[in-house]
Nucleic acid binder design. Structure first.
Lengths: 340, 340
DNA sequence: ATGAAAGCGCTAACAT
DNA sequence: ATGTTAGCGCTTTCAT
């Protein structure tokens, strides 16, 4: 790595001006094919790369996408959701020649204060935000700013660009599966109601029962927190009300629920059938292997980036709102998985 | 977010020149205390933030740290090692006012080609690299360049700056624990020998046995690949040789090993004691809970950043090589965990 | 101790 | 179709 080349030098080598080289580099029209070839050749030979700082300064854009993961998600960070999401995001960024900058809010700083600081630093063209909750001040702040952003996760506000998997229909699907299997007393363990995904999964559960004319019993609905311990506790409570089946809104909670049932001598799926949500690697491994709803996580990340870039290029005019379908992976815990 | 302020404007507001403001912002000496106060006040009032692109361009440094995670690690990405590492890295970056840029090699691109592209882009001051393997061309390339980097993971080459947990003594500790418990026929399941950490963990195992005058039986050493399936297979093989205990070089493999033993009617720890490595959240959850070696992963990330920044500031002259101690977490799988 | 001035390497109007 | 020119906002000599 010796001194980096400049546009000027490439121009000299190719016998053209800096502007022409710039046009070639940026794939702008108005360069004779022959000249373009010549310049391209020099660039290839020299391995020239434009200086991103200079580009940012002159062009008022950084070609950087920021990914914001707030404090609240750090707990979730131990599950593979974020890693997979990041893989998708990184892949899409590479493909579009954007750099990816990570903003983890690790401190107890006020989120908004931090985000303002971040925003004013002008070190990205747009933001991908994750793990927000209902009424998250970060979203409010971004909305009131002129920062372009896409939320990875559904947002009620129709102004917010967002991409998410369909939590409602994922849950609906799961519960319908249980109903088809002949169960009627179907319980659920939900995530925290501050989380929109949790609300929608619950809605899907309610709707599936409603559509089949099954009365929802309040006693069969346990609100929990996405954690294993929470799942254990919730299941322990539910056991008193003798459900035939249970729809658990996350694999982590399912693990806890499974343990609770084991501790109480309840067999899955023979005594109680279970359908879960997430399809973590764990799901396959659990005893019994979990029937669970799989989300296209990596795809979510990719689409998030593509949507953001689209907005960067073409404006945020009609808000982009993308909902991806989910898939039910049938294994053993629902009692229907013993197909060859 | 209105138009961002510039140094010039701050200078105007404070009644000084742009240069003086720059000195204040960069905490340089040679500004009268009184003037400094005045400028600082204006900066606080206006919320001025220097433009990073301009800074990079003029100052020849980006204040960005790049984190490189190659393809090979993507598989491992499902375990919490990287997330935790990233948390530490992000935290340290924030603390030192560096931005963090993520380079995931997701494609099947030639690593070196990609790394060259990355390097020439001048979009970081230094690099943190992870998940390299023995003889990794990425390291060779970086070594031959003038790019400052710190490897997160031990490297044999004394020129390479690296920080890692002590794999040798972690394994040593684990095996000594089993020996103290009275076991003699101690088997091991290692990671892939292309991975230095795996080699060192194996070395620690061998040394611990050797130091106690226990003969190492080749049949009791199974080489695997850090995966669950690999652990299952390796344990199945080991079972034929009737070990009393087994040291498994990763929690993921332990899960597989546990399953293998369950499938063969072997009870842990009653029939075979097990000590594992990593202390994933899973370790606590397994049946029985795993006695396992814990690494200070987050601390590793923090130290990586601090080391890199130190090098950036003070030069790479004496290579920095940091080895952190590990800790044995005693639970049930070794048969010694039933203390109140 | 402070200010003036010259770039850093690029983009984007404006000429030609 | 191509070149010229004027910045982008900052750091950094060099004057004063």
């Amino acid at each position: 790595m010796t001194a980096a080349l400049t546009l000027e030098q490439i121009g000299e080598l190719a016998g053209v001006s800096r502007s022409t080289v710039s046009r070639v580099v940026n794939e702008q029209p108005g360069v004779k094919a022959e000249v373009r070839e010549r310049v391209l050749k020099v660039i290839a030979e020299t391995g020239y790369q434009p200086n991103p700082a200079a580009r940012s300064l002159a062009g008022q854009r950084t070609r950087i996408i920021g990914l914001v993961i707030p404090e609240t998600a750090q707990i979730l960070f131990t599950d593979p959701y974020f890693p997979r999401l990041i893989q998708g995001i990184a892949q899409a960024c590479n493909a579009s020649d954007y750099a990816l900058s990570l903003f983890l809010f690790h401190t107890t700083d006020d989120e908004v204060a931090l985000s303002k600081r971040i925003a004013q630093k002008q070190l990205f063209d747009g933001l991908l935000i994750t793990a927000t909750y209902i009424g998250d001040p970060l979203v409010e702040y971004l909305l009131s700013s002129d920062i372009r952003f896409v939320q990875l996760g559904y947002n009620d506000n129709p102004q917010v660009n967002c991409v998410d998997a369909d939590n409602f229909s994922g849950a609906y699907q799961a519960v319908v599966h249980l109903i088809r299997l002949g169960f009627r007393r179907i319980a659920t363990i939900t995530g925290p109601m501050s989380n929109l995904a949790a609300v929608h999964r619950k809605d899907g559960y309610l709707q599936a029962l409603g559509d089949r004319g099954i009365l929802v019993e309040d006693d069969l609905v346990a609100t929990s927190d996405y954690t294993q311990e929470g799942g254990y506790q919730a299941m322990t409570d539910l056991l008193q009300h003798k459900p035939e089946a249970v729809f658990v809104a996350s694999d982590a909670m399912s693990l806890g629920a499974l343990r609770a049932m084991r501790d109480h001598g309840v067999s899955v799926p023979d005594d109680i059938a279970l359908v879960s949500y997430d399809d973590l690697p764990l799901a396959l491994l659990a005893e019994p292997a979990l029937t669970t709803v799989r989300q296209p996580i990596k795809r979510l990340g990719i689409l998030g980036v593509e949507t953001l870039i689209d907005i960067l290029r073409n404006g945020a005019k009609p808000p982009r709102r993308i909902i991806l379908p989910t898939e039910l992976v049938v294994r053993d815990s629902c009692g229907a998985g013993r197909r060859s």
